[in-house]
C-alpha cells in the first residue's frame, strides 16, 4: 500500500516534464516575438529586456501580413464546410448499408488520406491552371479535400455506427421522410462526431503548407507561406517571424479548448 501511494504521488512528474519539454520551444518563440531585432541578435536574454509590440504592429498594419491570416482562415473554413457536408451522407451510407463495391470504395478513400502531398503538388498546379483557379481560395479548399474528405467520412462513420439502427427505423414508422429524419433526429445525435470531424478538417487544412503554397501566388497566399519571406535587405526580421508564428498557434489553441473532451476519440477515428 505504501509503495503504491508513493508511485501515485510521483506519477505527475512524467506528464509535467513532458509538458515542459513541449512548452520550452514555444516559450522561446513568444519570448522572441516581444523583443527588438537588436536584442534578439546581439544579446541573450530569457525575458525581453525592453518588451515591444512593434513586431505585432507590423503584422496588424501591413496588408501583406494580415491578409495571409484572412486567406488561411477563408480556405480552411471553406474546406471544413465542403468536407463535412459531402462526408455526412457518404458516412451514413457506409455505416448503414452494404452496396456494390462498398469495401473497395472505402479503401480507395483511405488511400487518399495516406497519399503524400508531394505526389500531387505538380498535377494540382496543372489541373487548377487549366480551370483558371490558381490563386483562389476555393482551389486550396478543394485541393485539401484530398485528405480531409476521407478523414471526415471515416470519423463520422465511426460515430454513426455507434447510433443504434432502431432509431432510424422508428423514425420512418413515425412518418419522417429521410431528409427530415437526417437533419432533425440523426444529426443532433452525432453532433459531437460532426464537431470532431470539423475540428480535424480544420486542423489538417490549417497545418498543411505544400499544396496551399503551390496553388497560390498573391491573392490567396496563406500566412504560413508569407512567413517564408521575412528576409529583407537588413537581414532576417526575426522578431516579426516569431510574432507571426505565435499568431498561427492561437487559432489552434482556441479550437482545441472546444473539443478537448472528444479529441482523443477523434484521433482514434471514432473507434475507441
Amino acid at each position: 500500500m505504501n509503495a503504491q501511494a508513493k508511485t501515485r504521488n510521483l506519477s505527475w512528474i512524467v506528464p509535467t516534464l513532458y509538458i515542459l519539454f513541449l512548452l520550452l520551444p514555444i516559450y522561446w518563440l513568444v519570448n522572441m516575438s516581444f523583443k527588438t531585432n537588436t536584442e534578439i541578435t546581439a544579446t541573450f536574454t530569457l525575458i525581453p529586456q525592453a518588451p515591444t509590440l512593434r513586431n505585432y504592429q507590423v503584422i496588424f498594419t501591413d496588408p501583406a501580413w494580415y491578409s495571409g491570416y484572412i486567406n488561411s482562415i477563408i480556405y480552411v473554413v471553406l474546406n471544413t464546410v465542403i468536407s463535412v457536408t459531402a462526408a455526412l451522407p457518404a458516412a451514413y451510407a457506409f455505416s448503414r448499408y452494404r452496396f456494390l463495391g462498398d469495401k473497395h470504395l472505402f479503401f480507395w478513400l483511405l488511400t487518399n488520406r495516406m497519399a503524400p502531398p508531394a505526389v500531387f503538388a505538380l498535377p494540382f498546379f496543372q489541373l487548377y491552371s487549366a480551370f483558371g483557379l490558381i490563386d483562389t481560395h476555393i482551389a486550396v479548399a478543394i485541393a485539401h479535400c484530398l485528405f480531409n474528405v476521407p478523414l471526415a467520412v471515416w470519423i463520422l462513420e465511426g460515430f454513426m455506427s455507434g447510433v443504434p439502427k432502431e432509431i432510424d427505423e422508428t423514425a420512418y414508422i413515425d412518418g419522417y421522410s429521410f431528409p427530415k429524419f437526417f437533419v432533425k433526429i440523426f444529426m443532433p445525435l452525432i453532433a459531437s462526431g460532426i464537431g470532431v470531424a470539423a475540428f480535424f478538417c480544420f486542423m489538417f487544412s490549417w497545418v498543411e503548407l505544400l499544396i496551399a503554397r503551390t496553388l497560390t501566388t498573391t491573392d490567396a497566399k496563406p500566412i504560413a507561406a508569407t512567413m517564408t519571406r521575412t528576409v529583407s535587405a537588413s537581414g532576417m526580421d526575426w522578431g516579426v517571424l516569431a510574432a507571426a508564428g505565435v499568431l498561427t498557434i492561437i487559432p489552434g489553441a482556441l479550437v482545441i479548448w472546444f473539443v478537448r473532451n472528444y479529441i482523443a476519440k477523434g484521433f482514434a477515428l471514432g473507434r475507441v
Binding site: 513532458y18 513541449l22 514555444i26 522561446w28 504560413a224 508564428g245
Partner: peptide
C-alpha cells in the same frame, strides 16, 4: 489534454521555424 494537443495544431512550417 489541451497543452499536449497544442503542437499538433501548429502549422507544419511554423513547427520548423520554431
Amino acid at each position: 489534454l489541451v497543452l499536449m494537443a497544442l503542437p499538433l495544431l501548429i502549422p507544419w512550417n511554423v513547427v520548423g521555424t520554431i
